[in-house]
Design a protein around this nucleic acid. Structure first.
Lengths: 190, 190
DNA sequence: ACCTGAACACCGTTCAAGT
DNA sequence: ACCTGAACACCGTTCAAGT
């Protein structure tokens, strides 16, 4: 039967997860799906549009948390960031793809909307909640990118293990420090 | 006379600054320099290696600050981050290029070494100083990438001006919050 | 509605051969 | 030492024509 947009996205997620962004070409997807390249352009407008959908799909595996009380909101933020990291860390170049989606169609990334909600629940006022999310998302994506480059460059060596652990600690440290700084900046907040 | 590696790097910086990474191809550089593509590979091993040198060159415009006293070190960190941002913000896709250099040859980026020095002068112990720099550099590069995507997408519209200003405020907020969080995490530090 | 075939205008990298 | 010419193995996107 006919190819669907969903199958195309799934194939793209598959190639990305197994081989990375450098190997994720429209021609390769066409080969994988047993169609000609041109066929893909009936289902998506461009490769960029496809990548935005890939990013959405990657973040879809993060379950929507319960809406927290104001007191628990900072903890909910930290937990959500952990889940996002877990969802992305195993997929090569996922940070790059999410970064693209973030600039092209931010509303397609639901979990980042929840993040903003939680920061507001914690008591942050209007522009600052957005700023705070921005800092946290920069840290999340930057840490993931650095982690993946570390394991890619030192592939197979024992050093890659050490670098990955360093990155884990650095991520936790960053989340802690940023949340602490935010509550220091907003004394009304818990 | 013969092409030099320096001329090649300068040409690459020029194309990046004017047209962005998508237009920065080896073939285009060869055209610009009136040589055949193959000639470039006598001067650099690969496009990646060239991009690492481009990143170094971009950061070279940041002057080395005076070594601060412990009391002034946090301020020196903030000032250095501002200078880095100023050096990169006008060059399209500079954050991406620096990210690459950071993973391929971090020691080639002197100003990021100074950043680590200042954090240690401020009193941060050994693994934490590296973590802290990591958070700050993630924020720097993430903010620059977001800023540039904002102006690129809304090119010409009045909204691009607003988005750019939002990004400016968000950057300052982030630096403030992270530095505050760091000093809260390390009570011994000022 | 969905796809093929073929073209257009590109890429990065290598390398024998020239000067 | 430095470069040319030419090739190899790719790209993303478009579009008339087919079913």
């Amino acid at each position: 039967m006919a190819l669907t947009r969903g199958q195309l996205i799934d194939a793209a997620v598959g190639v990305l997860s197994e081989f990375g962004l450098a190997d994720l070409s429209m021609r390769r997807l066409a080969r994988e799906l047993d169609v000609q390249v041109g066929a893909l352009y009936w289902h998506v407008k461009s490769k960029q549009e496809l990548l935005v959908d890939v990013a959405s799909k990657l973040l879809d595996s993060v379950p929507r948390p319960e809406t927290p009380t104001p007191g628990l909101a900072p903890m909910a933020v930290a937990v959500l960031l952990r889940h996002l990291r877990n969802a992305l860390i195993t997929v090569p170049d996922s940070a790059e793809v999410v970064q693209l989606a973030l600039s092209m169609r931010p509303e397609s990334l639901d979990p980042l909307g929840w993040l903003l909600d939680f920061l507001k629940i914690a008591g942050l006022p209007d522009p600052e909640a957005g700023f705070a999310r921005h800092v946290l998302v920069n840290h999340l994506l930057g840490s993931i990118a650095a982690h993946q480059e570390a394991v890619a460059l030192a592939a197979g060596q024992e050093s890659s293990q050490i670098l990955a652990e360093w990155e884990d600690s650095a991520f936790d440290y960053g989340v802690r420090v940023i949340l602490q700084g935010i509550s220091a900046e907003h004394p009304a907040t818990i």
